[in-house]
Design a protein around this nucleic acid. Structure first.
Length: 670
RNA sequence: GCCGUCGUAGCUCAGCCUGGUAGAGCGUGUGCUUGGUAAGCACAAGGUCGCGGGAUCGAAUCCCGUCGACGGCUCCA
């Protein structure tokens, strides 16, 4: 349907639905008049131009799913008499309904779904009814959650609406689909538990997740996609490819990398090391433990001690395992004096940090208790910010282009909210003694000048402005479109976060570039400026992958485990046709390994067919079959991931695959 | 941390409701077979049924506790 066809004019005094051609009607769920969404049953009081909302449009789907949420609620109420409804909004790819009721399990969903199908088949008319606030309060008098909403949303003396279908009604502004027959392609997906208004002290609720589509075909397509993304779960792939393991008894939440997984990690670390060095970042190493005194100084202890692994030695000294790398890097920076000419000083480290995540929060490699950050800290003069940040942005681009074909990246600039700055560390100018001090208002009892005690302090945003300008300029000079989020900055400075979209359309926050005014002050860092005076440097915290663990998750799930050859843990799987060709197989394996290609020869007493079938789960880049023909001509029969088979001269094959690896080709070239 | 579901062989799972001390497929090992690109044949090994307690003549099975995993909620420097 073109833009033109979507618009139509509707005469006064008759429902919109009656003006829509019969053939078109079933695909339309609602309409828009002057920017407001209305039901198809809406009767205009003068001739109007309406825009039709198709079921398969973004807005149409939301309406359809919201109606499906109502249908779920209706089914639940008819099956569970004591259930009390809370709210049931549409979500990005479905809907949920929060209901106070006795816990149910996912097995009960089938029963509810049956009921929904039955209600849908009855083609119940969905009606909009206007009610005054008083009427609403009467209608929903037995439901505290609805009453809360009515009180919060409907002003006394005003009206709002309920939607009715059969014996069911819900307080709702709509719009909704005309009748329940529109809701035939529905599926309840899972059940979870939540609390009223997300507050643990409030009532427990059952949250039922589901989705709905205009027709069964698109629902099935969605379910197939969902299945696919479950198949691509990195935990499953990791097990199949034998990359890592978790031992829930011995180290809950900590991944242990098997040879294949560690091989991938070292490749990633190696790539990053090379990239960093090319951009002037120097590798350092810091210990995994520091005295608690350092964490107290850095401020981490006060804020995050519940998430830190802390322990005391028998002599009484207390230590903490590092939850961050920056104080370590600062400690290295502190070892000597710097002139303004020495700056920038840029350190990086693949630094493994340990954070005690609460039991319900850990999960696979996405949220482990130990992870390794490709962490970098730069110490800069104010005038170096733009250049250095721009350089980091180039690094980010380069890094992701090596792993993905045309990666889709989204840049968020998080800045201070000047209307609401109590939480941020800012400079205050004292009107009484003219001194400047850095204070975070939310962290002090009373805002007063640390020099003279005066309360006549005026916020000075100049440093924040300069930093924000620097980040912006860096983005602009790299030709990067970005969105600005006031109030999202860290308390110590503004930042740029970079999200990358994966193959399944999910967006991951990976890179971050943060400016920090706080740590340098806290640790009293300085350099000698042109005037021969001590000056405080600005710190940049940055990570490109974010963590190696999360990045590995994205790689595995994006490629469904079929990684580009340069990071594939099994680059060549060599299979002799029969054991009588083991010798030639060994020769091939040796030749491959001599060139640094990760290859294994499988000369076990099994059929070639079985070997090929079973190696699939390990996702080899190439399967190399050798037999009589190959051994006589010094060739190999190579099968790539598209199942295409080609015979190559052995030396030529090795040259070609080496090139593919060296060039970090994303697609297979053979 | 909270709520729900789950925990049986290396992996995937059955058995649990209705108690009588475990089963399949894949994988592994051995033998036969010696093969041309996703299922050749046979035999075998492999499990304190997460852990602890309780009621029972008897528990993988029922009850309680605990640890862990998963899905959510909340959190994520």
């Amino acid at each position: 349907m073109s833009e033109k066809e979507k618009k139509m004019s509707v005469a006064k005094g008759k429902p919109i639905a009656q003006s829509i051609p019969g053939g078109l009607l079933p695909s339309i769920v609602a309409a828009r008049i002057d920017g407001t969404l209305v039901d198809l049953s809406f009767v205009p009081d003068h001739e109007v131009e309406v825009e039709l909302i198709k079921a398969d449009s973004e807005e149409g789907l939301r309406i359809l799913r919201h109606s499906a949420a109502h249908l779920t609620a209706q089914a639940v109420l008819s099956l569970y008499r004591n259930a009390k409804l809370n709210a049931g909004p549409p979500t990005e790819d479905g809907f949920y309904y929060d209901i106070q009721m006795d816990p149910i399990s996912s097995e009960d969903l089938g029963k509810i779904e049956e009921k929904m199908k039955e209600l849908s088949a009855r083609k119940l008319k969905i009606e909009r009814v206007e009610m005054s606030r008083e009427e609403l309060e009467r209608e929903f008098s037995n439901n505290k959650f609805k009453l809360d909403k009515i009180v919060a949303k409907v002003k006394p003396g005003h009206k709002s609406t309920v939607y009715r279908q059969g014996d069911f009604q819900d307080f709702c502004t709509g719009p909704h689909v005309p009748d329940t027959s529109y809701l035939s392609a529905v599926k309840l997906l899972s059940v979870a538990s939540t609390n009223y208004m997300g507050d643990v002290t409030k009532e427990k609720m059952v949250r039922i997740y589901g989705t709905a589509f205009p027709d069964k075909k698109s629902l099935d397509q969605f379910l197939a996609m969902r299945e696919e993304s479950m198949k691509r779960d990195h935990r499953k792939i990791g097990q199949e490819m034998d990359l890592f393991t978790f031992n829930s008894e011995r180290a809950p939440g900590f991944p242990l990398y098997a040879p294949n997984g560690q091989w991938i990690r070292s490749r990633m670390v190696g790539f990053m090391k090379d990239l960093n060095e090319r951009y002037g970042w120097q590798e350092v190493w810091t210990p995994h433990l520091f005295r608690d005194t350092m964490w107290k100084q850095s401020g981490h202890y006060a804020k995050y001690k519940d998430n830190m692994y802390l322990f005391q030695l028998s002599d009484g000294d207390s230590y903490a395992i590092k939850p961050m790398n920056c104080p370590g890097h600062i400690t290295i920076f502190e070892r000597t004096m710097y002139s303004y000419r020495d700056l920038p000083v840029k350190y990086f480290e693949a630094g493994t940090v340990y954070r005690y995540e609460k039991s319900g929060e850990v999960g696979g490699l996405t949220r482990p208790r130990a992870f390794t950050i490709d962490d970098g800290h730069a110490f800069l003069r104010m005038d170096q910010m733009v250049t250095e940040i721009a350089a980091v942005l180039s690094m980010v681009k380069e890094a992701f282009s090596a792993f993905f074909h045309k990666p889709e990246m989204i840049y968020d600039l998080s800045v201070i909210d000047k209307e609401n700055y109590d939480n941020y560390l800012i400079s205050y100018h004292c009107n009484s003694c003219d001194s400047i001090s850095d204070i975070r208002k939310a962290a002090v009892e009373e805002l007063k000048c640390p020099v003279c005690g005066s309360t006549e302090l005026e916020p000075d945003f100049s440093r924040w402005d300069a930093a924000t300008e620097a980040l912006k300029n860096a983005l602009v000079s790299n030709d990067i479109p970005f969105k600005e989020y006031p109030g999202e900055a860290a308390f110590y400075g503004p930042k740029i976060d970079i999200h990358v979209k994966d193959a399944l359309g999910r967006s991951w926050q990976l890179s971050t570039v943060q400016l920090d005014f706080f740590m340098p002050i806290n640790f009293d860092l300085n350099f000698i400026n042109e005037q021969g005076k001590k000056e405080t440097p600005v710190m940049v915290h940055r990570a490109i992958y974010g963590s190696y663990e999360r990045f590995m998750v994205i790689l595995l799930e994006s490629y469904a485990g079929k990684l580009p050859t340069w990071i594939s843990p099994l680059q060549c799987y060599v299979v002799p046709v029969s054991q009588s060709f083991s010798d030639y197989g060994r020769k091939v394996e040796k030749a491959l390994k001599a060139r640094g290609i990760r290859a294994i020869l499988d000369d076990t007493n099994e059929t070639m067919n079985r070997k090929i079938r079973n190696i699939r789960r390990q996702r080899p880049s190439y399967i190399v079959v050798v037999g009589g023909k190959e051994s006589e001509t010094n060739t190999v029969s190579v099968r790539n991931r598209e199942e295409k088979q080609t015979v190559y001269d052995l030396e030529k094959f090795i040259d070609a695959i080496s090139r593919e690896i060296d060039e970090r080709e994303i697609q297979q070239t053979l």
